[in-house]
């Protein structure tokens, strides 16, 4: 017993020393360099999101009548303030891995912000996928794209799926997850794979009033 106590004394002594060293290091590093946005982290997150989106295309099904002819290209629009090159990341992935939507090549577009309701149909007329960046969360409303069939609407942050989009990519606890709104799919004449919905560790199905994402504050990107 005595040896155990002695041992713990050594141990706590060493721990105290280390705590001091590490905390001092933290303080010094903070004091010297302060805190700025880490674009490296944001770029890393953009890569994760692009990988998610590429997977998501595989799990979604469009009605053939909502897509252009089989030899045409379909549009994928990235909407919002793209300061971390998400669209380029996505384009690289689509090009490199030859990702298609039901056999059709994908063309990536960018758009500065969500258009007014009366412009929407015209602007997105050739798009099968519209991806809304975090910057557009406050512009998004349940009416956005609600009349457009065959458009997979995806957004960064839980608000999108809660308010009518098909899917939200949500960052929670240093992980990315998908929040799927089945109503968002059916209302746009889209189908979502049941295999996707069964991936419970990666996917949560949005239920009005019952979604845990509601209480999760997504990090700013």
């Amino acid at each position: 017993m005595l040896s155990l106590i002695t041992r713990f004394k050594h141990f706590t002594k060493a721990m105290r020393f280390a705590s001091f060293a590490i905390v001092s290091f933290c303080v010094c590093s903070n004091a010297s360099f302060g805190k700025t946005d880490s674009s490296e982290n944001a770029r890393a997150e953009a890569r994760f999101k692009a990988a998610y989106l590429a997977h998501l295309l595989h799990y979604s099904t469009w009605a053939e009548e909502d897509l252009p002819s089989a030899d045409s290209t379909v549009g994928l629009a990235v909407v919002g303030d793209d300061r971390h090159h998400f669209a380029q990341v996505l384009l690289f992935l689509i090009d490199e891995l030859k990702i298609t939507i039901q056999g059709r090549k994908v063309k990536v577009f960018s758009l500065a912000h969500i258009p007014d309701a009366d412009e929407e149909k015209e602007i997105f007329k050739d798009c099968a996928v519209v991806y809304f960046l975090k910057s557009e969360e406050n512009r998004w409303s349940e009416c956005t794209l609600c009349d457009k069939k065959g458009v997979l609407a995806i957004g960064e942050g839980s608000k999108y799926a809660r308010e009518g989009a098909c899917v939200s990519i949500v960052r929670s606890r240093n992980r990315l997850m998908l929040l799927v709104n089945r109503e968002g799919f059916t209302s746009r004449n889209l189908k979502v794979s049941s295999r996707l919905l069964r991936l419970r560790s990666a996917v949560e199905v949005y239920k009005k009033g019952g979604c845990r994402f509601l209480v999760i504050s997504a990090r700013p990107t």
């Binding site: 890569r47 590429a54 549009g75 669209a87 577009f109 996707l196 996917v203």
Partner: peptide
């Protein structure tokens, strides 16, 4: 406001980032 078609800009991503992206896509969801 109009859609701007994107051309692939290979300089937008570093080779390290491209490798990581391929690896991430190789993972299932």
């Amino acid at each position: 406001l109009e859609l701007i078609p994107l051309e692939r800009n290979d300089d937008a991503l570093t080779p390290f980032e491209k490798s990581e992206l391929r690896r991430l896509f190789g993972l299932d969801l």
